[in-house]
C-alpha cells in the first residue's frame, strides 16, 4: 500500500472525472428559433430548447435594444418545444431582435428590415425573481456550436497535459543521463517518450474528431495544431536517432542531448511564442477566442477538469512505469 497508493488515486480520479464529465447535464438553452426574420404584424415563432422545462404560463418576450415586445399567446407543446405568437409593432430601433424564454436568451434571433426610432416597450421585461433551476443545480455551460461536445474538454485536453508531463519526465531523466551516464536513466527517458507518443497520438486523433464536429475540418492551420505536429515529429526523430546508434552509452548521451535541446525549443514554441505574438487561433484562450474564463463562469468545468488532468497524468506515469520495468527485465534477459 505504501508505494502504490497513487495508482488507486489515478483510478479514483479518472472514475470521478469521467462519470461527472459524461453525466453532468448541460444548462438549459434555446437552440433553435424560427423564423429568422420578422416584419411588423403578427408572427408565429417556433422555439426549440435543450434541457429546458417549458411550462404553461412561462415568461417569454422579444427584446430589441432594451425595448420589449410581449407575446399575445404562449403555447407550450412539451418541455423543449413552444409556439409563441406576438404582434410585432413597426419602428424597431435595431435590426437584430433577441428572444427570451424563461430567462434564457437567444441573442440575435430575428432580423428586421426597415427600422424606426423605437416602439412602445411592453410591460414584460426581465423577471426580477431568480430563475428556477432546481434539479439542474450543477450544469456545464451550454454553448452554441459546442453543445454536448463541451464534455470533450475532460477527455481530449488531458491527453496533451499528460504528454507534456511525460516528455518533462523524459527530459529530467535525460539531464540525469548527462550527469552520470546511467543507462537506467536513459531507459526511463526512452520509456517516457514512448508513452508520451501514445498520448500524442490519442490527442491528435481525438482532436481531429472534435475539430470536425466543431470547426468542420479534421485539420486546421492553427498554432496549437502546428505545435502538436512538431511535437510528434521531434519525438519520432528522437526514436530514429536512437535507432541509428549501436553503442549504448553513446546512444544514451546523444539522445539525451537531442531530447533536452528539442524540449526546450518546443516549450518555447508552444507556450512562449504564441503569447508574445498573440497569433490567431481557433483554440480557446488565443487571439480573441474565449477561454476558460468566459466559458466557465462558475468554475463548474474546472471542478471536473483538474481532477481529470491529474488522473490522466497519473495513469500516464503508471504506463511509463510498466514500460520501463518491462524494458529492464528484457535487457536482463538479453544479457
Amino acid at each position: 500500500m505504501k508505494h502504490w497508493w497513487w495508482k488507486f488515486l489515478a483510478i479514483a480520479l479518472l472514475l470521478v472525472a469521467s462519470i461527472a464529465g459524461l453525466r453532468v447535464p448541460l444548462s438549459p438553452a434555446l437552440v433553435h428559433v424560427s423564423p429568422s426574420r420578422i416584419s411588423p404584424g403578427e408572427v408565429n415563432i417556433e422555439v426549440t430548447g435543450y434541457n429546458t422545462r417549458f411550462s404553461e404560463g412561462m415568461r417569454a418576450y422579444l427584446e430589441n435594444e432594451g425595448q420589449y415586445v410581449c407575446p399575445v399567446r404562449v403555447e407550450v407543446i412539451d418541455a423543449t418545444h413552444a409556439r409563441i405568437t406576438a404582434v410585432v409593432p413597426a419602428g424597431l430601433r435595431a435590426s437584430m431582435t433577441d428572444l427570451v424564454v424563461q430567462g434564457l436568451k437567444y441573442p440575435g434571433a430575428f432580423f428586421t428590415e426597415g427600422l424606426g426610432d423605437g416602439i412602445e416597450s411592453g410591460p414584460c421585461g426581465p423577471s426580477t425573481n431568480k430563475l428556477d433551476m432546481s434539479g439542474l443545480a450543477f450544469t456545464f455551460p451550454n454553448r452554441s456550436i459546442l453543445y454536448e461536445s463541451i464534455r470533450n474538454l475532460h477527455f481530449h485536453v488531458p491527453m496533451w497535459f499528460t504528454m507534456i508531463a511525460l516528455m518533462g519526465i523524459s527530459v529530467w531523466r535525460s539531464i540525469q543521463v548527462l550527469g552520470n551516464n546511467s543507462l537506467d536513466r536513459d531507459r526511463q527517458a526512452r520509456s517516457a517518450v514512448h508513452v508520451g507518443l501514445l498520448f500524442c497520438a490519442l490527442g491528435l486523433t481525438t482532436g481531429a474528431v472534435w475539430a470536425r464536429a466543431t470547426w468542420g475540418a479534421f485539420w486546421t492551420n492553427d498554432v496549437k495544431l502546428n505545435g502538436a505536429a512538431v511535437t510528434a515529429l521531434i519525438y519520432l526523430a528522437y526514436l530514429v536517432l536512437r535507432g541509428s546508434i549501436p553503442d549504448a552509452h553513446k546512444r544514451a548521451r546523444l539522445a539525451a542531448i537531442y531530447n533536452i535541446f528539442a524540449f526546450v525549443l518546443l516549450v518555447m514554441f508552444l507556450f512562449v511564442v504564441p503569447r508574445l505574438n498573440a497569433i490567431d487561433s481557433l483554440h480557446p484562450g488565443n487571439g480573441g477566442n474565449s477561454g476558460f474564463n468566459d466559458l466557465d463562469l462558475d468554475n463548474r468545468l474546472r471542478v471536473i477538469f483538474y481532477p481529470a488532468v491529474a488522473g490522466w497524468i497519473l495513469l500516464g506515469i503508471w504506463l511509463y512505469d510498466l514500460r520501463h520495468r518491462s524494458l529492464r527485465i528484457n535487457e536482463h534477459l538479453d544479457r
Partner: peptide, 25 residues
C-alpha cells in the same frame, strides 16, 4: 453521426478512441 444527439456522439467517439488507443498499447 458526429452532429447527432446535440453533438454527444463526438464525445462518445473521443472516449472510444482513447479507450481503444490505451487498449492497443
Amino acid at each position: 453521426q458526429l452532429y447527432g444527439g446535440g453533438k454527444l456522439n463526438a464525445v462518445i467517439a473521443v472516449v472510444s478512441i482513447i479507450l481503444l488507443g490505451i487498449g492497443i498499447w
